[in-house]
Design a protein around this nucleic acid. Structure first.
Lengths: 223, 223, 223, 223
DNA sequence: CATGAATGAGATTTCATTCAT
DNA sequence: TATGAATGAAATCTCATTCAT
């Protein structure tokens, strides 16, 4: 009978914290992202990642093969995140100036919110993009972005609010550059200029500056 | 308390070829710069640096204390080099627009010519500028640069060729950003945009673009 | 920022024989005690300790952090051993004179049997007890010893077989001194006096001498 | 003429600090004694000795051959010093009790004043007196000391102030032990007993204790 | 006599990875 | 699935000693 008094209790198994493969995998990935973006690929320690994830070291190898495999997983996961975020941007429904402003500010805010993305790009560039080159999806994923910018530029030129002949890739690199460099290099810049560039109000001011620079560049020259 | 006489060590052999401390120090610094900028601080190997410099490993410790001391020396030396080059520009003798153009193009060309500078900054920022903050010279090293830009901006405003109220630090960060990001991230950018951003003629075009962006931003708004 | 994927390391081979953490830890501690007491802290070699323990060198760091941590463990373990042995004496059940005699002879025999204890103390005193001072257990470890001696002295005074007013710490230092110095300095003493102080019968005679000295000191002065 | 105005001054040679072999040798010996007694033989650093002596490292090798030779010189010099001090003790002119008291207090005070002597003995004993055994003088140097004690003991026995049948070597070892151990182990003893054994008034008290212990031992047993 | 740069051997410590349980 | 002890290779750093100047 089920309702009877307990006799000898069955030895309870040690309460394994996870036993949930998905959770374990996710915890490792999160820990690895933090560790690798903080210390770089060679600086990151496998032991530290396992400890941070609260998981046995052996599990890293079980799920990701080796440290390099873990790095690739982190990279893919991080890129996937930014792609997902970009989907929500419906620039083409706005007027050209408002659309451009939105793109610029979105990009800037994304860098503020995702320092791990900046770190990872730095790491990957030091690596001469060795991994990224092996990815087939990456390339096609950026076509829509360039397309969106092209549409904005064309409509802006037609409406005489933008100059004609702007190269969308050159422009996008500049939009990214103005935010990326500020955020990725804010520690050295703060040190050499003796100013705290990470202060929230300073970030707002930087965002406005970037918008100004980009819009000034796009503005048609008056006769 | 220490017992047992030490084993007599084996006799060292023939001494070095140089006996020229300055040369040795410089060779180590050069080798360390190359190795550290290629592999990062944790990725760089002390053995590799010594081998590249053609000196005994022991010398690195003799001259620089330890790996971190060597890294700090590389960092200071690299920063000093760009700031020294900037001083040689003599911008204040030119008219404001020409002076600004010269500064922008110099900065851009410097990044092209000194990829090690870009790498080192990336490494140091991953470290949250921990080493740079310990350097006492660094801060004063940058005052002249900001001063030069201020002079240019003031004279440009007086001559009505620049807008008034431009923040020189904000401006310098943008000048640097437009070149730095392009060069430091050229591997990933080339991959995602499917264009070889390292081609010489492409670099020239980027330089012109940066000048355009900066000058458009500085241009006074017509009424 | 760290670039360049790490070289894949060569695959480790067959694992150890034991897989018995307690045994491994104990083996390392035993080997370290032997090596450090024979050569001193700086003279002891980590490689030699690992070899003597029959374990991989890496394990020393796994269990004890570093060489200093290992030294501290040796120190604590060695002190704990003598204090534990003392507690087993049950002195308080004997009459005062017999109890004191037993304590003196026990202490003397302990020094004969544990030359590593003498060496370790010499090493640590050269260090100005720097390591011992960091140990939290050590202090409390000695309270029982002093307590035991106090009880003996009080009972002896009450029974008029000991003088009153004896300081237990001063007394214990003298008990230890008379044996410790003889054993720890027996090599130089044998040399300068031209007598083999390590001969078994000589050790017995010394033990009797120490008992005599201590009991003469404790004896109440007749009027 | 000597009184004329100076013309071109002869280039003054850099003011070499020493150029005085004896001074240099003595400085090295002093520095080596300090370093070796503080850190032990293996713990002492050749560089540190040279720096402390304010002398070029090469000089150590010039004067003493190698590190081991330097150790031997330190040992010899230190022994020579205690021998010199003992010469002034004219114990045999005093009455037995006063003479014994003087010997005990002299020995105690010598240990207080010469901690380097204690350290060196500890080091040499760890070394199993390997060096001391090679010295031919050492042995004969201690005969007078033993002789002095024998005379005191005999006269004391004759005058019925000392027991008969005391072994002078056993006694001397005890006299030395009671002071040596206290001083050489004062760091660990202070730590485990939680009392500052190095305080000046504490040292005075210890001296009195040692005298008491020794005289109680020598006292004839009343019938 | 004096300097200090240079050396080779070897010390301690770190690391990604694997294996017994 | 999960644990953490164990491993070999290689990293950083130290040291007594020698040599060119």
């Amino acid at each position: 009978m089920e309702g009877s008094l307990p006799k000898t209790r069955s030895k309870p198994r040690a309460a394994s914290l996870t036993r949930d493969p998905e959770r374990t995998r996710a915890a490792i990935l999160r820990a690895a992202t933090a560790e690798i973006t903080a210390k770089g690929l060679t600086g990151a320690r496998v032991d530290a990642i396992a400890a941070r994830a609260g998981v046995n070291k052996r599990m890293l190898y079980h799920y990701f093969g080796d440290k390099q495999g873990l790095y690739l997983a982190v990279l893919e996961h991080t890129y996937a995140a930014i792609r997902a975020a970009e989907i929500g941007l419906n620039l083409t429904e706005l007027d050209p100036v408002a659309g451009m402003r939105k793109l610029v500010l979105f990009t800037w805010q994304y860098f503020i919110d995702h320092p791990e993305f900046l770190s990872l790009l730095a790491t990957e560039n030091m690596n001469r993009a060795a991994y990224l080159k092996t990815s087939k999806q990456i390339r096609t994923l950026h076509a829509p972005l360039v397309g969106m910018i092209e549409v904005l530029l064309k409509r802006g030129a037609a409406e005489k609010v933008f100059r004609a002949g702007i190269d969308p890739i050159e422009l996008y690199i500049s939009i990214a550059a103005l935010g990326f460099f500020y955020m990725s290099n804010r520690h050295t810049l703060s040190t050499i200029f003796g100013e705290n560039l990470s202060a929230p109000e300073r970030l707002v001011r930087r965002g406005e500056h970037i918008v100004e620079v980009i819009l000034a560049y796009l503005k048609p020259t008056k006769l």
